[in-house]
Write a protein that binds this DNA or RNA. Structure first.
Lengths: 188, 188
DNA sequence: GGCCGAATATGATATATGTCATGAAAACAG
DNA sequence: CTGTTTTCATGACATATATCATATTCGGCC
């Protein structure tokens, strides 16, 4: 059985019909590192479930990449702004590692919501989960000093350091890579 | 009929039973300016609909108030982190103006979701809407210069300037009130 | 309507962090 | 392997913005 069906079942047991409809709408896909799932100007048409791999969301600001978030195996990945509004994205979604993903289109998802009202329960719970994570990241950004923002990331999302390059983390923390390098040196 | 029943109906027509259940779970309430809906340490037990008024979400950081957002008539107001996780809040929700609010408890809301599956559709849509707004604010925060963050707020949320004190806006933009004052002076 | 505390404006100075430059180390490709 | 590119580290310097101080204006309230 598909890994993400298993995952959805842990949120709420799926009826046979719903399980079948989900399987019919999705397919696993193996993608190489550096593959780009979405780029500015495109409308986000699909939501991705990561069975394995690592994805980064980022925007270009004055020619610089600003990383907004990192998602790993077991996570759902979308551009929130573009997918929910179905307007052109301003962000990139890029694989940092090779990945196995399952994806479903916006239209197919709306059909599932319509045909299986109980699926709205799952959708709602998942959106709540990622909304909470997003708010937590936003709250971190509001710390004024670089050292504080770094400390909060270490405290709340320590695993990110295991696989993400430091210059990506620096941009995520709103500081220059040099500043992060010096911070880490001083703290060790 | 209650103003927010009217509002919910525009999202999705409500059945008579659901309408009745919602009305039975909520009650309008008139609150004075400066009333605090939630403070750090408390678990957010209720979600509020603002019929009139203005609410600010903020946290204390090193003795300073950092305003996260402002909500006005027609908006739903909660502490995302505390309400969705039912953990103690780290933020304040405070009325900046007298308000008429309708509120419902976490438990009553879960009951509605359970008893009226179609209500999950409305809940999902509402959460999506505020998630999008939250992401937009977070994206603004990632601009590096004070002038840029100010320009984005003017572009995307110009109405906030009509009713919110500038020092609150300054903290929302991650800058000292003096910096905002100078910025505005230079631009006019 | 006039008083008083709060909000905003403006100037002088301090400082965290960005920028630019260079070198070392690590990751990667052929 | 070995060369090449990318990443990270470290130093010197520049600068945006915070901080502190004071003046001015605004707005709520008796």
């Amino acid at each position: 059985m598909s890994s993400f069906i298993t995952f959805l079942n842990t949120l709420q047991p799926l009826s046979a019909g719903l399980t079948e409809a989900i399987l019919a709408s999705t397919m696993p896909e193996k993608l190489p590192a550096h593959h780009v799932l979405l780029r500015p100007g495109q409308v986000a048409r699909r939501v991705y479930f990561l069975e394995t791999g690592l994805v980064r969301g980022y925007t270009l600001l004055h020619g610089r990449e600003i990383s907004s978030w990192f998602m790993q195996a077991g996570d759902f990945v979308i551009s929130i702004l573009s997918f929910f509004t179905q307007q052109p994205s301003e962000e990139y979604l890029e694989l940092l590692e090779p990945a196995v993903v399952h994806s479903i289109s916006y239209d197919q998802l709306q059909r599932l919501y319509h045909d299986f009202p109980e699926f709205n329960f799952i959708g709602r719970r998942l959106i709540e989960k990622y909304y909470v994570l997003s708010e937590q990241r936003a709250q971190h950004l509001r710390s004024r000093t670089a050292a504080e923002r770094y400390a909060l990331l270490v405290r709340d999302f320590p695993t990110v350091f295991q696989r993400v390059a430091l210059h990506h983390i620096a941009s995520h923390l709103g500081m220059a890579p040099e500043t992060l390098s010096r911070l880490r040196n001083k703290l060790s």
